[in-house]
Amino acid sequence: MAEWLDHLRVLNGAAENTVKAYATDITGYLAFMAQHRGGAEGLAALITLPHADLRAWMAHERARGVGARSLARALSAVKGFTGWLAERDGADATAVLSTRSPKFRRKLPRPLAVDAARAMIGTVGEQGAEDWISARDQAVVTLLYGCGLRISEALGLTGAAHPLPDTLRITGKGGKERLVPVLPVARSAVARYAALCPFDLAAGEPLFRGARGGALNPRQIALVMEKARNQLGLPATATPHAMRHSFATHLLNAGGDLRAIQELLGHASLSTTQAYTAVDTARLMEVYARAHPRA
């Protein structure tokens, strides 16, 4: 299993969190199979497990409260591991690899309206106990909406990124790099924060600092946005990640190309980005249901 995880990490470029999740999934799967089948067995038996054993494991997982989405991920890990073993040993893993994943409904992104996104940025800039903290929070949220960054990506910037260039090189999930254009408003927001910040923003140090000078905790941005959304009467879905969703949705609504938006977001698969078209369709159907004259 360790060898397979190294394969994922090195050759497939899997993120460390993904590798850890898969390790947990496979460890639980192997423990169940050992108990279910009366003891640990060799690799050949693991590769050729029948459908009935896979279904028993899936039923066990659901019974202990694992959701369909999490189970689908765990099954994906099992298939990946088993397929890798089968290819290495020249065995047939058809029964395992053909097992169907549980169906689940993908959660649609919950973007803010354009006016709400702007109001959020403005309100966040009025919450801090000190001017530099208000400027910091506003700069971070502006980057989330203006550049479509994940909160981890924004807070991962170092002093070397200031002043912001016309294009940022961002390293996202799985070590995947992408280029992100920087809007003048985002550059100005970061410049204002940097001018007010009482700490030395050295090239190798975090760009965004906490009140005591350490790296800014993402929870602080979540809290300031929670306070702002309560003031603005926005739903609980108005989170830091919702600003990234809003970036993508508003670009799409303005005629942006889906492939280009995929690149800007750093999505490995176009199907992930296509969730934003589902958001647009869902909104269209809501308007239709609300406005269409019915007998």
Rank of each mutant, 00 (worst) to 15 (best):
A72F: 09
I121F: 04
D131M: 09
D166H: 06
L201R: 08
M120W: 05
R105H: 14
I26K: 02
S152M: 10
N12Y: 12
A203C: 04
R62W: 09
F199T: 03
R9M: 09
L143Y: 08
V180I: 14
F81I: 03
L5S: 02
L168E: 08
A14V: 04
A161V: 07
A74G: 08
I261Y: 01
A68H: 13
R105K: 15
A113E: 14
L179W: 11
L54Y: 05
A129G: 04
G42Q: 14
A236E: 15
R150H: 11
L108K: 06
A77E: 01
E286A: 13
T27N: 12
A63D: 15
A289K: 13
L97G: 00
A31C: 07
K79H: 12
A77Q: 03
A291G: 06
S271P: 00
A95Y: 03
R209V: 07
A268Q: 07
V19K: 01
A74R: 15
L75N: 06
A238H: 00
D131Q: 12
R244I: 08
P218A: 06
G148C: 13
P198C: 10
G210I: 00
S152Y: 12
A59H: 11
G204V: 00
C197F: 08
L30S: 03
A228W: 10
W57C: 07
R294G: 09
L8F: 07
Y288E: 04
G122C: 07
A222F: 10
L223V: 04
V182C: 05
A254P: 01
E263G: 10
A72Y: 10
G210H: 00
S101K: 12
E153S: 00
R118C: 06
A116W: 12
R88A: 15
G90L: 13
V140S: 07
F32S: 08
R229D: 01
A44H: 08
F104K: 06
D53N: 02
K103C: 11
A228F: 08
Y276L: 07
P50I: 12
L265E: 05
A189W: 06
P50K: 12
R37N: 11
D115R: 14
L196C: 09
A260I: 07
T48Q: 13
T273D: 09
M58R: 08
H51F: 11
N17G: 12
D166L: 06
